[in-house]
């Protein structure tokens, strides 16, 4: 597994554990009310599991497993996928902490724009790596 995929997948696992922890708190709160403020964690629970867990995992595994190019760099432009990692995770943290602490729509929109930019970046990266068997492409 390339080191960038290790970063993506381990980050996904951190979000997975965090999302499950918040989910368990929300579930306990449904049975034994703890504090009304607990519900402010719901958007973070969804964000960490949908975007944090799923997208980081998908991007990391796709970067590792998709067909490689015939010449170096065999997995495409490293700077582009590094930018995707930074944009995605900065976006997730911006959205989730804004939802928990500030409820400030400006930060939420900025975070979502970062996530959208990461999605576009990843599509640009992955597109030329999706080709039939035996047909190498050069970026």
């Amino acid at each position: 597994m390339p080191s960038l995929s290790v970063w993506f997948v381990r980050t996904a696992l951190i979000y997975f554990a965090s999302g499950f922890t918040v989910g368990a708190l929300l579930l306990i709160h449904k049975g034994v009310p703890l504090s009304p403020l607990i519900w402010r964690l719901l958007p973070a629970h969804i964000e960490w599991l949908f975007a944090g867990w799923m997208l980081n995992l998908v991007f990391g595994v796709a970067y590792w497993m998709l067909p490689r190019h015939g010449i170096e760099p065999i997995r495409g432009r490293l700077w582009l996928v590094r930018s995707v990692f930074i944009l995605l995770n900065t976006g997730i943290l911006t959205v989730s902490f804004s939802e928990i602490f500030f409820r400030e729509i400006t930060f939420i929109v900025i975070g979502r724009l970062m996530e959208a930019a990461s999605a576009i970046g990843f599509a640009i990266h992955a597109w030329p790596r999706i080709y039939p068997f035996g047909q190498y492409q050069v970026r």
């Binding site: 381990r10 696992l13 499950f20 922890t21 579930l27 306990i28 449904k30």
Partner: peptide, 23 residues
């Protein structure tokens, strides 16, 4: 519901911990 919260949390943390070294 409390039992469920505990079991799901243990399952989630257990998976993350057990697969971590294989990443």
């Amino acid at each position: 519901l409390l039992v469920s919260a505990g079991l799901l949390w243990l399952g989630g943390i257990g998976y993350a911990a057990s697969i971590w070294k294989r990443v």
